[in-house]
Amino acid sequence: MKAIIIAAGQGSRLLPLTLETPKCLVPVGGRAILDHQLRAVEQAGIRHAVVVGGYRVEQIAEHLARHGGAVATDLIFNPFWAAGSSIGSVWAARACLNDPFVLMNGDTVFDAGILAAAVNDERRGVKLVVDTLDEPEPDDMLVEVASNRVRAVGKTLDTARATHRSLGVVASKGGGAYADALRAVIGAADGIHAFHHAIIDRLAGVDAVAAVTVPRDAHWQEIDRPDDIERWRREHGA
Rank of each mutant, 00 (worst) to 15 (best):
V26K: 09
V206M: 09
I5E: 11
A3Q: 08
R225H: 04
G9A: 10
A95W: 00
P138S: 02
Y55E: 06
V52K: 09
A83C: 07
A146N: 12
D107T: 07
R225P: 02
T21V: 14
A32P: 15
R234C: 09
Q10H: 08
D217H: 15
T159S: 08
V50T: 11
W81K: 10
D228F: 02
I229P: 02
R94P: 06
W220P: 09
D139A: 15
A116D: 07
H197K: 08
A179I: 03
V150Q: 13
F77A: 12
W91E: 15
E144F: 00
P27N: 09
P22S: 13
L75D: 08
G84M: 04
D121E: 13
A7C: 12
V52C: 05
T213D: 04
D140S: 09
H236K: 09
G175L: 02
E20Q: 14
D111W: 05
L38Y: 04
Q10E: 10
V143M: 07
E20S: 14
D121S: 07
R151Y: 04
V41C: 02
A61Y: 06
M141R: 07
A70K: 15
I223D: 07
R233G: 11
R165Q: 06
I6C: 05
P138F: 01
T108Y: 05
V57R: 15
G191R: 09
V28R: 09
R231D: 13
R151S: 04
T21D: 06
V153W: 08
A112R: 10
D217S: 15
V119H: 03
E144P: 01
Q10K: 14
E42A: 15
D224R: 13
G29H: 05
G84I: 06
V170P: 01
D201C: 05
D139Y: 13
D35T: 09
M1V: 10
A194R: 15
A177W: 01
N120G: 08
V143L: 11
N120T: 13
Y178P: 04
L75T: 05
G113Q: 09
V102G: 10
V212I: 00
D131R: 14
P100M: 03
T108I: 08
L14I: 06
S89T: 06
W232L: 03
R31N: 11
A82M: 09
I192E: 15
A189N: 13
L203Q: 11
A204D: 07
H219M: 12
A7I: 04
R66A: 11
Q37L: 08
R165W: 01
A112D: 12
